[in-house]
Design a binder for these strands. Structure first.
Length: 234
DNA sequence: GCGACAG
DNA sequence: ATCTTGTCGC
């Protein structure tokens, strides 16, 4: 059963890029990086993703809860709303978070570890979507992105499980993780209350058969399907 | 200054 | 993110 709700953009949501960057600078200090996070294969893991229809000004977020041991779907929810911010590199969170928060709130059970489609610490101001969502909810969060953004990395060795640092200059902000032999890696970073090493281990545990973790695959499919049938939000 | 840049 | 058909291969 899937719960569907309406998402509202908060009244105090930033209206300009300057305001949004100021929010990131203010919240960044609240990120917790000294917790390892839950062991892979234990408890629950929730994938969140968002789909857009700019023509209709509709955004739909999905949250899909998986049993970490079996990767079976335990619960899922979607939230539809109006687009709250334009896409600006470095400010993705302001476009996705209101809908994602509504979807998480609509879940009938605790989400456990939250896996985001995007970055956490691997961000120009070290405060990407996953970190932002973690600070707002208090939940352990991590990011798995499909592209290296503006960061550099050396291609990991071919075997699944190989990794290489994702670098901002000399700083390791994340890791390129090979989830399938010889296939383009995914880009993992810590969000909140999860270590980078654990985020990489979680990613491998969540991606036994495909390049992308099951959390992202399931949440991506759900928000896209929901977008097709979404009514115009209030 | 110009371009590149998670989704 | 989204626009988009068929096609090659396991």
């Amino acid at each position: 059963m899937t719960t569907t709700v309406t998402a509202q953009t908060p009244a105090d949501w930033p209206a300009t890029e300057e305001q949004a960057r100021a929010v990131q600078d203010a919240l960044r200090a609240r990120v917790v990086l000294d917790e390892p996070g839950p062991p892979p294969g234990t408890g629950r893991v929730t994938g969140v993703d968002v789909a857009y229809d700019d023509e209709r000004d509709v955004v739909v977020a999905a949250a899909v809860v998986l049993d970490a041991a079996t990767l079976a779907v335990v619960a899922e929810a979607t939230a539809a709303g109006r687009i709250s911010f334009p896409y600006v590199p470095g400010l993705l969170a302001f476009r996705e978070i209101p809908a994602v928060l509504a979807a998480l709130d609509a879940l009938p059970c605790p989400p456990g570890l939250v896996v985001c489609d995007g970055y956490g610490l691997a961000h120009p101001r070290r405060f990407g979507l996953a970190s932002h969502l973690g600070v707002l909810t208090g939940l352990p969060t991590m990011g798995v992105a499909k592209n290296p953004f503006a960061f550099t990395y050396d291609d990991p060795d071919a075997p699944r499980g190989s990794t290489s640092p994702l670098l901002a200059g000399a700083e390791e902000v994340g890791r390129a993780v090979r989830t399938r032999d010889g296939v383009k890696p995914v880009f993992v970073s810590a969000g909140h209350r999860v270590s980078l090493a654990n985020a990489c281990a979680q990613t491998l545990a969540l991606a036994p058969a495909y390049r992308l973790p099951e959390t992202t695959r399931r949440s991506d499919a759900l928000c896209r399907a929901a977008l097709r049938t979404a009514a115009y939000p209030a």
